[in-house]
Design a protein around this nucleic acid. Structure first.
Length: 283
DNA sequence: CACACAACCTGTCAGC
DNA sequence: TGCTGACAGGTTGTGT
């Protein structure tokens, strides 16, 4: 599920219910995720009270009381298939429930990840910015640091397709495959255009489209693939707003007459990942 | 340094 | 029904 809008949706659900809660017990069922869960994680978090739950790019950052330079920060990444779920009792055992927290009010919080591309790590507050997973991340796409001048500067000289550049987390952090496709469509920019060949006008449209698509997706509670549900059990519904992603062969939503493109939405593979676009409206 | 691609792991679906 | 191959929201490591 997880690009920036999905992670932000999860963050909001967690923050609402867990801020101020104390972690009573932590059960580590399976540590071998993308990176191993630190064996001392339960011991370091049990008895701690959650101060805040924040987000950086696609990472969740769970902070604890008392705040300070040596306070622990739990870094959570959901990979491709990670979920965070509340269990108020009655959840049947699942082999993919890798980490289970029990809060002071009895709430159980479960980190579930079928493919185990995600990970859960611990850092210290003072070393967070330099942490290997976070250092080098580009600006937040919804922040002021991501503007036309910045994007133009970073695209200059790059001989990779603009689609691949948007997925580069060092350039801008949080865009994934779905929202890269959607933003390029909304901006009218071909995913195959070389980054260096993106005009200033197009860069401006791209910045605007990225911010707009991500903002609308967050408002919709993210996109739900398969049976994915948010922490509160609700389904995100932005997948119904996709213009091109997953719509190979369907008519473009905004081509005049619906079927103006003979082929409809096209699918190509770039850097090993599917790209969906309209060859008529994206140049 | 920049770029393309394989690898990581499990599940699902289409086609035969 | 069972098998095979393609594909899936991401990131990292390797090779050119």
């Amino acid at each position: 599920m997880p690009e920036l809008p999905e992670v932000e949706t999860v963050r909001r659900g967690l923050a609402k219910r867990l801020t101020g809660q104390t972690i009573v017990t932590v059960r580590l069922n399976r540590p071998d995720l993308r990176f191993p869960i630190p064996p001392d994680l339960p011991g370091r978090l049990e008895g701690r009270t959650i101060a805040s739950i924040d987000r950086r790019a696609k990472y969740l950052l769970v902070r604890f009381e008392p705040k300070g330079a040596d306070a622990p920060v739990m870094i959570v990444h959901l990979g491709m298939s990670g979920r965070i779920l509340f269990d108020d009792g009655g959840r049947p055992p699942d082999p993919h429930d890798h980490l289970v927290f029990t809060a002071g009010d009895g709430t159980r919080l479960i980190y579930n990840d079928v493919r185990r591309f995600g990970f859960v790590l611990l850092a210290g507050e003072s070393g967070l910015a330099a942490h290997p997973r976070l250092a080098g991340l580009g600006p937040e796409p919804l922040g002021d640091g991501f503007d036309t001048a910045y994007l133009r500067g970073r695209l200059a000289g790059r001989m990779t397709p603009i689609k691949s550049a948007l997925l580069d987390q060092k350039l801008v952090a949080g865009i994934g495959n779905i929202y890269a496709c959607e933003a390029l469509f909304q901006a009218g920019v071909s995913p195959s255009r070389l980054a260096a060949a993106v005009t200033g006008k197009q860069a401006g449209k791209l910045v605007e489209a990225v911010k707009d698509v991500l903002s609308r997706a967050i408002e919709a509670g993210g996109s739900s693939l398969r049976d994915y549900v948010q922490t509160d059990g609700e389904l995100g519904y932005f997948q119904h707003s996709w213009s091109v992603y997953g719509r190979q062969g369907e008519p473009c939503p905004t081509c005049p007459g619906g079927r103006a493109c003979a082929t409809g939405v096209s699918r190509i593979v770039q850097s090993g990942r599917s790209t969906f676009y309209c060859h008529r409206q994206q140049r």
